[in-house]
Amino acid sequence: MTQTLEEVLLEFEKGTFYQAVNKKNELIGSVRGFVDNDTLYIGKLIIHPDYQGNGIGTALLKEIEKDNSGLRQELFTSDQSLRNLRLYKRLGFVQFKIKPLSKDLNLVFMEKKPGLLKT
């Protein structure tokens, strides 16, 4: 996945970024989001491979959700990202749409309605 500098700057202007750092203050994870109407669009949950499986992604998602409580939440991932799909389902997200990208790859769109924040 690549982005132009202009796309990144636009995300900074209209969105919110949450970061996780280790004890050395090194960036080890992040999640981005922006609100449009009554929906929080969550994107780019990224955790450094050395830190995956330690609850950092869950903590980042819970924090962005908490700060935007009362809003519908939406995100998408690849149907090949089984670990992400399990995480999102565990946190209460439900699939509502599939968008084919190629014969072997689909985007899975998931949502969570207000009031369904899981702990």
Rank of each mutant, 00 (worst) to 15 (best):
T2F: 13
Q3Y: 15
T4L: 07
T4Q: 10
L5M: 14
E6D: 12
V8M: 08
L9K: 14
L9H: 14
L10N: 15
L10Q: 15
E11A: 12
E13G: 00
E13W: 07
K14S: 07
K14N: 09
K14I: 15
G15P: 14
F17M: 10
Y18P: 12
Y18S: 10
Q19L: 12
Q19H: 05
A20T: 04
A20V: 10
N22I: 11
N22Q: 10
N22K: 09
K23E: 12
K24G: 01
N25Q: 04
N25D: 03
E26F: 09
E26R: 13
L27R: 02
L27S: 00
I28F: 03
G29S: 07
G29V: 12
S30K: 14
S30M: 12
V31T: 04
V31W: 03
V31I: 15
R32V: 07
R32G: 01
G33F: 00
F34P: 11
V35S: 02
V35L: 06
N37T: 09
D38R: 02
T39Q: 00
L40Y: 04
L40T: 07
Y41K: 06
Y41S: 08
I42A: 05
I42K: 04
I42N: 06
I42L: 10
I42M: 06
L45S: 08
I46V: 13
I46M: 01
I46F: 04
I47C: 01
I47H: 00
D50W: 03
Q52P: 00
N54V: 01
G55M: 07
G55W: 05
I56Q: 00
T58D: 01
L60G: 01
L61K: 00
K62F: 05
N68G: 01
S69Q: 04
S69K: 12
S69A: 02
G70R: 11
R72G: 02
R72H: 11
E74W: 06
L75N: 08
F76W: 14
T77S: 09
S78P: 02
D79M: 09
Q80M: 13
L82Y: 05
R83T: 12
N84R: 02
L85C: 04
L85Q: 09
L85F: 06
L87T: 08
L87A: 03
L87F: 03
L87W: 05
K89Q: 13
K89R: 15
R90K: 14
G92T: 11
F93H: 02
F93D: 03
V94W: 09
Q95H: 10
F96E: 01
F96S: 05
F96D: 04
K97T: 14
I98P: 00
P100K: 12
L101V: 15
K103H: 11
K103E: 14
D104I: 14
N106G: 00
V108W: 03
V108M: 02
E111L: 09
E111S: 14
K113A: 03
K113P: 00
P114F: 09
P114H: 08
P114N: 06
L116K: 13
L116M: 09
L116E: 09
L117Y: 12
K118I: 10
K118P: 01
K118W: 03
T119E: 11
T119M: 09
